[in-house]
Amino acid sequence: MSARRHPLLIPVLLLLVVVAALGSLTLGAVPLSPARIVAVLTGGGDDVARAILLDLRLPRMLLGLIVGAMLGLSGAALQGYLRNPLAEPSVLGASNAAALGAVCALYFGLAQSHPLALPALAIVASLIGIGALFLLAGPAESPLTLILAGIAIATLAGAGISLSLNLSPNPFAAMEIMSWLMGSLENRAYGHVWIALPCVAVGAALLIADGRTLDALTLGEDGAQALGIDLRHARLRLMLGVAIGVGGAVAVSGAIGFVGLIVPHLMRPLTDRSPSAILLPSMLGGAVLLTLADIGVRLIPTASELKLGVLTALLGVPVFLIHLMRERRLW
């Protein structure tokens, strides 16, 4: 078969992942000289540099890569499955449900009593959301019922979050909930990495294995089934992959929008445009984009650090509009 993506696409993306990762280690609010960084990375270095690099920046860098990869991949998989270029994890309600779970943990004070309460609740809520989606959408494989049910769940979860803000006992609690909704990788530790990594690994494995199903769906549901695809199983894998992966990601980073929407659009022109060909590039691209955005929020001088979700939305909308205009040949 002829080249399905540009032969250099994956190597270049891998290089960018390395560059972004190094950038995330070396750039930050406290300037560290290259010599001090190299010293730490080679096993030596002074205590301050070690603390900043290994305890603060390294987990943050890892989380940026992990969360970004999951958001990019799930966006690509959902756009392929739903045959809708506007799909992203929040379309199925997965991210909103996870965010609601996190907010509940904060609101009821569970987050203070146990450090794992918040991520666990986020993942459970995301699974409940997807389970409800299954019940609502019924046995039909049609993407339209799935999108409609997803919107219903996303809206309900959003209303729940607003309600918690509305009823929150004091402004500090509201602030905490708000900051969670805007998404951030500030002050994350290795514990967060160990929560996100297994979830994202399971979710990504479920999503990336289904590339062929997504390609077959180019011919519609009848066409795919006549090619031997069992759509019911495929849908189960997709939903579990999104619920577990995105649930785990949102549990540590909060809701970060637009990465899942934009990255597949950026990658598609560099491939043969088949849904399977953009899965891996979107995963790598998501990791790069989110890590770069996270470097951005650290470097942009503002009174309080910008929230990551705010920056991705601010950057994402113009990129999306440019893409839209290109598609409409206005550019």
Binding site: M1, S2, R4, G80, R83, R212, D215, A216, L217, T218, L219, G220, D222, G223, A226, L227, G228, I229, D272, R273, S274, P275
Partner: peptide, 22 residues
Amino acid sequence: PQGQTLHWPLAVERLVALGRMP
């Protein structure tokens, strides 16, 4: 199928190769 719609702009060769999927 009758009047099949194509959901992504695939190259003809890629599209026909989907037939080998089973």
